[in-house]
């Protein structure tokens, strides 16, 4: 077996993991599967592309590659603004759609269907604005560096992996060491009781949307940087994201990242051992197996 699948799987898995954290947090707190989450990845990536291009027009020096990486200062600067914009988009969708449905005490299936509608709308809008033609943050070519053991990775790929791990640690610390994290865990377990204890549940929901959107934006930028940008890039990631969120256990941030890595490695292994055409089936098979054998996933708690 070619050891390169380890690197390929970990890098793809890091992307899945970041996206799955948003899925798992919104699922555990809002109690529905938000199928529009993957469109936040796409929106974040395109927002960063638009802003990065605009910065490049203002100052061509910002496009000059940073050290070993393929991108210049324009991308990290654009990424920060794109994260804010993606967060605002998530809050806007909640205010216009999901929040109103919650206020009406709509059933879970209504929320899920609404998320499909939101996803379709966002995806179509992005396709309308940016066209379906693939886009790239940079056209710079990168040489993969030898990592030893027959494995290679580009500096961009290594940066994405390190960034993903750093973000997971940061989110885990946020959840376990801060007041807002404690509130999020409390709302996840029992929303009514959390209110009785003094937790502002609506504020927690806003924080969850923001956090999930920011992570989705980063995952989208990673996907755009390492592969390409397309209006359907989020849609294509939907199944791996949900497979990772459910395999990790709903509500578990480390679980989502670990499961993302597992899904990524399984896909990379399948491509090499079985064939590339089976890649998309892997997440589906994992999802079905987890739901059948261990519905609460690796780190989730069984339903009472």
């Amino acid at each position: 077996m070619n050891p390169q699948i380890l690197v390929d799987g970990l890098i793809a898995g890091a992307m899945y993991g970041l996206g799955a954290i948003g899925v798992t947090l919104t699922y555990s707190i809002l109690r529905f599967a938000n199928f529009a989450h993957s469109e936040l990845l796409t929106f974040g990536a395109y927002a960063a592309l638009a802003l990065s291009s605009a910065l490049g027009v203002l100052s061509a020096g910002l496009l000059a590659p940073l050290g070993p990486f393929s991108f210049g200062w324009s991308l990290p600067l654009a990424a920060i603004t794109a994260m804010a914009l993606t967060g605002l988009l998530a809050l806007a969708v909640d205010a216009v759609l999901f929040g109103r449905l919650r206020a009406r005490r709509s059933s879970i299936i209504v929320m899920v269907m609404a998320s499909f509608g939101a996803a379709l709308t966002l995806r179509s809008l992005l396709e309308f604005v940016f066209t379906s033609k693939p886009a790239y943050f940079t056209r710079e070519l990168q040489i993969a560096l030898p990592l030893g053991g027959g494995m290679r990775a580009t500096p961009d790929q290594l940066l994405a992996l390190v960034l993903a791990i750093a973000l997971v640690v940061a989110v885990h610390l946020l959840l376990t060491r801060t007041a807002i994290g404690r509130s999020m865990r409390a709302v996840s377990e029992n929303q009514a009781l959390a209110g009785v204890v003094g937790v502002d549940v609506r504020r927690v929901i806003r924080v969850v949307w923001l956090l999930g959107a920011v992570l989705a934006c980063v995952a989208g930028i990673m996907a755009g940087l390492l592969v390409q940008l397309r209006p359907y890039m989020g849609f294509d990631l939907l199944l791996p994201l949900f497979a990772a969120a459910i395999l990790g256990g709903i509500g578990s941030v480390p679980g989502a990242m670990l499961a993302g890595l597992i899904v990524g490695l399984a896909e990379a292994g399948t491509v090499q051992l079985v064939g590339a055409e089976w890649r998309t089936a892997v997440a589906f098979i994992i999802l079905v197996l987890v739901l059948l054998l261990r519905p609460h996933g690796l780190f989730g708690r069984p339903q009472a």
Binding site: A179, R182, S183, R185, A186, E189, N190, L193, A194, V197, V199, R301
Partner: peptide
């Protein structure tokens, strides 16, 4: 909150 520690229940 059954999944939180006693300390976290009080801290919350």
């Amino acid at each position: 909150f059954a999944t939180l520690t006693i300390q976290d229940n009080l801290q919350l």
